[in-house]
Design a protein around this nucleic acid. Structure first.
Length: 885
RNA sequence: AGGCGGGUAGCUCAGCUGGAAGAGCGCCACGCUUACACCGUGGAAGUCACAGGUUCAAGUCCUGUUCCGCCUACCA
């Protein structure tokens, strides 16, 4: 059936380009909107349009592709939905940088022209990562590729916004938010990264208006004093009891501010008195709300001190800090400073220090949504795996705060809210309104802000399927089967999809969520540009091939562990591909005259190794199937590896060589060919989801009937191949071979030297097995002769080995190396003695016999007999050696 | 501060519901045997972090200690 031969080595470059195009040409990635097949669906975590493929993407998408390809082969109508994310801030930044090179800003262009410019950029460069995913071999249904800002997705965004608004779950208000002075926008709590800083804690004296003793406050941000509207102390603090309600004079500003009591203040910290700057600190803002304090903004959107601050107007916040400190010192208000480590929030995009700032923003009232999302996981409607993440999810959901969804940037979904210029009515609509419904005025002004990018990402599982239209695809594929993503976006994305899915679709967005670990470098460090320890996936694909790279990722993906990636590992799996490649070459050479059609191969014509390898294959199929069902990617990968290399190649190919070489019975030869062909093609199928390219390459040559492996049927476990007898018999034969090889190695006998071996056993079954396996043993242990003996008398000049109930004597010419043999046997004996001691101690224990289960005791007794037998054999052999020496 | 995960062979890690310590890489020895030196055969190598406890039996379950990593919150 084979259609020729393979080149000496696998060329990944040629293969990858060729077969990916072939799959595309044949529409193999396409999923049906409706089908009689069971559905499997998975939405891609949309990478940023600005993104380049990094290790995280590579891992994430490899795992998704493995699942999608496996399910597709298993007969599912499998959809892998691809797309990209418009990444508001990141993309705007990129284009602004481009503009900066031309010496202009987005304000020079104006909103519409700027947006047009971003679209240009997106069309030109936005597809880069999609092509990189194709290099990885991803089998996404590209005909459905979505973008969070395309028309359909925009429609979904507006629809959801309006629904939330009408349900009273969206509100606008002046609150303190995290403000990035560089991006010039609010960002959500999640988008702030905290970083430890070595700073100072300054003590400042605030004098009392009535001339009595003032109060000392401590702060890490002295410049914010310009906006202080109170000083707070603990109501339980005896030191300040009589001060509460008095008025202080704010230095430099001369504002009169009250001393108030609030439980937020801790007595122990610092002086026990806190300056309150409601416009610059979330806690202070909360205090201000409780006490009705004034809120004085002291900075503009760029964190430059504003006109309310007199001589400091126009200064950057940090420049202002120096000046304020200098002036406080001059005025004698600065009492001291001490080094102080505290954490400072930074913008996760640009790393600029966040400025907490009061501003008018839009929020989603999140508690009701979070409640449903929590319940769904508790009820098991969605499973989060590994399960330990469920707690983290619950924890976060329980402590969730309202989600700030407005962003003061241009690139994104503009908030669908308009105001009538005449009557001031707020109009919220899915369609651009042309007139005010109340006063019929036609001059309407739309909100300037856009929505957080995660708002549209949260809708991804249903927006990509066509919602709000009632599409067939939506009916077929929602809820999706599986989501695979990194744990780092559990809150950002997974939690929000859960909330939105339940709110909009009244059902969870996915059945299973598999959270994978982070990819680190070989030292376990997080990869980052600044550390220079980035491993570029595309470079790895070029160097080792996508298959080896993918296999490495899968093999290293143990649940709940970080992945330490190194080139050596990838190289190792490239060797595995080479092994498979060469096993294929061997197969092809021996299958030239084989055809799977024609007379079926009778079960009774199968040899012992044939039956054995089919049994082992069947076990492997079960293991791989189970591992994939449980998302144990590493287990699946190592099962296949173990089978192909250490069972199929190491043993079966060697055992069947004489039969395949065609000297003997043609019927047995055909049975071996059939077995070889089946084992090889089944292995390839098991391997295909992990290594799509090399398996297709081989399939095309080996099967050669014009079919593609990627739409072939995934192997299923089949009880008919279960063969415990073959397993036991082959096991004994393999043990005998290993035992002889061990003697050869330990006694330093050249591999080329043909040996004479005598096997003694009293066990008739064992004897029969060896009789049957005589040829295999002679071949694989390189023997001149193998004879059975039923005489207890031991041959002279022989090294002794034990395998099960067999005694093996390797005849040595001339003088035996008595000392060497003794050493070898003593070493063996030491091991046996240790085992024997452990087992006999157990069997002597009454409690063990009484309390342990029967099967365990039985097993232990069996073990004892086995080890005892071995012990006796070694002992007689040793005794004889001692007599000789 | 709270939570989570981890400390098993030189390195990277498997070891599910407790029943004789495993793999890959590396290392050592011998081998160009007609698929493969990106290979073959054999070998060495572990008080399973520490201390208690439960049990006939503990790497596996419980408690405590310690070290490492991560997450969340707070930080005047």
């Amino acid at each position: 059936m084979s259609e020729g031969s393979l080149s000496k080595v696998f060329d990944s470059h040629v293969s990858e380009a060729r077969w990916y195009q072939y799959w595309l040409d044949h529409n193999f990635f396409r999923a049906e909107d409706s089908s009689l097949k069971p559905q499997f669906s998975i939405v891609i975590p949309p990478p940023n349009v600005t993104g380049m493929l990094h290790m995280g993407h590579a891992l994430n998408n490899t795992l998704q592709d493995i699942m999608t390809r496996a399910r597709r082969m298993q007969g599912y109508n499998a959809l892998w939905m691809p797309g990209t994310d418009h990444a508001g801030i990141a993309t705007q930044n990129v284009v602004e940088q481009e503009l900066a090179k031309e010496g202009i800003t987005r304000n020079d262009l104006g909103r519409d022209k700027f947006i047009a410019r971003v679209w240009d950029w997106k069309e030109k460069y936005g597809g880069v990562i999609i092509n990189q995913l194709k290099r990885l071999g991803c089998s996404c249904d590209w005909s459905r590729e979505s973008f969070t800002m395309d028309q359909k997705r925009s429609k979904a965004v507006r629809e959801v916004f309006v629904r939330l608004y009408n349900d009273g779950l969206i509100y606008q208000g002046d609150y303190i938010v995290n403000w990035c002075p560089r991006c010039h926008t609010a960002i959500s709590d999640l988008e702030v990264e905290y970083d430890e800083r070595n700073g100072f804690l300054w003590q400042i004296q605030y004098p009392c208006a009535d001339g009595t003793d003032g109060v000392v406050v401590a702060t890490t941000r002295p410049e914010t004093m310009l906006g202080d509207t109170a000083v707070a102390v603990s109501p339980d603090d005896k030191r300040y009891k009589d001060k509460i309600g008095r008025t202080l004079i704010l230095p430099l500003v001369n504002r009169r501010i009250p001393i108030i009591a609030d439980h937020h203040v801790s007595i122990e910290f610092g002086s026990g008195a806190v300056k309150v700057t409601p416009a610059c600190d979330p806690n202070d803002f909360a205090i201000a709300e409780r006490h009705g304090l004034d809120i004085i903004k002291i900075m503009d959107g760029a964190a430059v001190i504003n006109e309310k601050c007199g001589i400091y107007h126009g200064q950057d916040r940090y420049e202002c800090r120096e000046n304020v400190l200098r002036d406080l010192e001059k005025g004698g208000y600065l009492l001291g400073k001490e080094p102080y480590v505290h954490s400072v929030g930074q913008c996760y995009r640009c790393k600029t220090d966040i400025e907490p700032m009061v501003s008018r923003q839009w929020f989603v009232k999140i508690k009701p949504l979070a409640k449903a999302a929590t319940a769904a996981v508790i009820k098991g409607k969605t499973k989060i795996l590994p399960k330990s993440w469920e707690n983290t999810y619950f924890e976060w959901m329980n402590n969730i705060r309202d989600w700030c969804i407005s962003r003061q940037i241009w690139w994104g979904h503009r908030i669908p809210v308009w105001h009538c210029d005449i009557c001031g009515k707020e109009i919220v609509s899915t369609k651009d309104p042309s007139a005010c419904p109340d006063c019929k005025g036609v001059t309407l002004t739309q909100e300037e802000d856009v929505l957080d990018t995660w708002f549209s990402s949260a809708l991804w599982p249903f927006s990509t399927l066509g919602w709000p239209d009632k599409t067939e695809a939506l009916k077929t594929f929602y809820p999706t089967s599986l989501l695979i993503t990194g744990f780092d976006i559990l809150f950002f994305w997974v939690a929000r999809m859960m909330m939105m899915g339940l709110y909009v679709m009244k059902d969870v967005p996915f059945r299973d969520v598999y959270l994978h670990a982070l990819v680190r470098d070989e030292m376990g460090e997080k990869m980052s540009k600044s550390k220079g320890n980035i491993i570029d996936p595309l470079e790895m694909i070029d160097k080792f091939g996508a298959d080896a790279f993918r296999y490495t990722l899968a093999a290293l993906t143990a649940q709940g562990r970080d992945i330490k990636m190194s080139e050596e590992r990838i190289a190792g799996y490239k060797h595995f591909i080479n092994k498979i490649w060469n096993a294929t070459r061997f197969s092809l050479m021996n299958l030239e005259d084989y055809s799977s059609s024609g007379v079926p191969v009778g079960k009774d014509t199968l040899s012992l190794p044939d039956r054995w390898i089919m049994h082992r294959l069947n076990v492997t199929i079960s293991e791989v199937t189970k591992a994939l069902d449980e998302y144990h990617f590493n287990d699946a990968a190592s099962s296949i590896y173990q089978f192909i290399w250490h069972e199929l190649c190491d043993w079966y190919l060697e055992l069947s060589k004489p039969t395949l070489y065609g000297k003997g019975d043609p019927i047995k030869r055909r049975a071996a060919q059939h077995t070889l062909f089946t084992a090889m093609t089944s292995s390839l199928k098991l391997l295909h989801p992990f290594m799509p390219f090399v398996t297709e390459e081989i399939w095309q040559t080996m099967v050669g009937d014009g079919s593609s492996i990627m739409v072939s049927e995934f192997p299923r476990p089949d009880d008919a191949h279960e063969d415990r007898v073959a397993e036991r018999e082959m096991g004994l034969i393999m043990d005998a071979i290993t035992s002889i090889r061990n003697i050869r190695g330990e006694m330093n006998i050249a591999p080329s030297k043909k040996l004479q071996v005598i096997i003694f056993t009293q066990d008739t079954e064992a004897s029969a097995i060896i009789g049957m396996g005589n040829g295999y043993i002679k071949n694989l242990a390189n023997l001149e002769s193998l004879t059975m003996s039923n005489s207890e008398e031991e041959p002279r000049n022989a090294a002794t080995g034990v395998a099960g109930l067999l005694r093996l004597y390797v005849l040595l010419e001339g003088v035996v190396d008595i000392a060497g043999e003794r050493k070898r046997l003593e070493k063996e004996m030491a091991k046996v003695d240790k085992d024997l001691m452990v087992i006999s101690r157990k069997l002597a224990n009454r409690d063990f016999l009484a309390k342990a289960s029967k099967t365990v005791v039985g097993k232990e007794e069996e073990k004892f007999n086995e080890v005892k037998e071995k012990h006796d054999i070694l002992e007689t052999a040793l005794k004889r050696l001692r007599d000789m020496g």
